[in-house]
């Protein structure tokens, strides 16, 4: 890791206050990671694990309660509102539901042109040309610019959203479950489009998903979140071939296998993810963990790097012996 990582998230925490003001919800709890340009980080976790909140914190759409996000050597929370607005052209977001993230009253052409209008990029004619070429590059038919979003299918709409995201030539794109609202047959088309654009435009992706097989297809590094905390972080290969944390193992065992004889023993998790307002003491995962020890119910494990592979971090008492104590 060099001294100035492209994107550096350090100890970011976000606490929400419930309406009554009594309960505090720690949606994201002390998350840190570094990412180089051109890499893809996959963030996986169940509903309520804080993955969408983390995505919004990275883009500073939400203000972190503590911790910093440094993007391109700029500390995002120290920027003024105006500076932040100008920096937004370098960092874009793709939302989960293309049916609600596109204004139904704007034509596709206006929607794709909106980022250019906002940042006053290029002259009026040049904008039109750029809109046309961008629409073409994401695979939208040439006649679609004068039509409205409701005339398109989910996959096509997500292409519109992608065109909007890439038109300002950004460096970082946070994609919040960009394919989970789509049919499986369309999912791979969109994923391949994202990969192709990454190669062409040197994009860095933060790819949020609850679907491990999707993340396996696209991510270089994977972060597994559970109740706002990182339970395991490592390269795609390490996470899938050498998972350490029982939660990661359970998630991976739930990925459907193509070959029916290839069936490994599936680890079935009992119960649901606990409420974020009353997290279990000790390791948050202990009530559902089949390997839980007495210690897990009392002491919260730290996220530690594994001796044999320093890039691979795990937060579990089972592996304290094989990890660095920092």
């Amino acid at each position: 890791m060099n001294s100035h990582p492209f994107l550096s998230v350090s100890d970011v925490t976000k606490t929400f206050q419930e309406n009554s003001g009594k309960n505090k919800i720690k949606a994201v709890d002390g998350v840190s990671f570094n990412l180089d340009q051109g890499e893809t980080l996959g963030i996986v976790g169940e509903t309520g694990s804080g993955k969408s909140t983390l995505g919004r914190l990275i883009l500073n759409l939400l203000e972190p309660t503590s911790g910093t996000v440094t993007f391109n050597s700029k500390n995002l929370s120290s920027l003024s509102t105006k500076e932040m607005r100008t920096s937004r052209r370098e960092m874009q977001m793709i939302f989960q539901d293309p049916f609600s993230s596109l204004d139904p009253r704007m034509t596709v052409g206006d929607l794709i042109r909106e980022p250019l209008d906002i940042h006053k990029i290029k002259s009026k004619q040049d904008r039109h040309e750029l809109v046309q070429s961008t629409a073409k590059s994401v695979g939208l038919p040439a006649n679609s610019l004068d039509r409205y979003p409701h005339e398109f299918s989910g996959g096509q709409r997500q292409r519109i959203a992608i065109a909007r995201a890439i038109i300002t030539n950004p460096k970082l794109i946070v994609a919040d479950e960009p394919v989970s609202a789509l049919d499986v047959s369309i999912q791979s088309q969109i994923l391949n489009l994202l990969l192709e654009l990454q190669r062409k435009l040197e994009l860095t992706y933060i790819f949020i998903s609850h679907d491990l097989s999707v993340v396996q297809h696209i991510a270089d590094k994977i972060m597994v979140l559970y109740l706002g905390k990182v339970v395991e972080f490592g390269t795609n290969f390490e996470i899938f071939n050498n998972p350490h944390h029982p939660y990661t193992k359970a998630l991976i065992s739930a990925v459907p296998k193509i070959n029916p004889h290839d069936r490994t023993d599936r680890i079935v998790l009992l119960g649901d993810i606990p409420s974020t307002t009353s997290k279990p003491p000790g390791c948050h995962f202990n009530p559902r963990c089949h390997l839980a020890m007495d210690m897990c119910r009392v002491v919260e494990p730290a996220l530690l790097a594994i001796k044999s592979d320093p890039g691979h971090q795990v937060s579990c008492h089972l592996f304290v012996d094989e990890s660095f104590t920092q």
Partner: peptide, 17 residues
């Protein structure tokens, strides 16, 4: 509360816009 408002904000749109 609609998502396209957040989407527009994430593009860097001002409140006036």
């Amino acid at each position: 509360e609609k998502e396209f408002i957040e989407a527009s904000r994430s593009l860097g749109a001002t409140n006036t816009r």
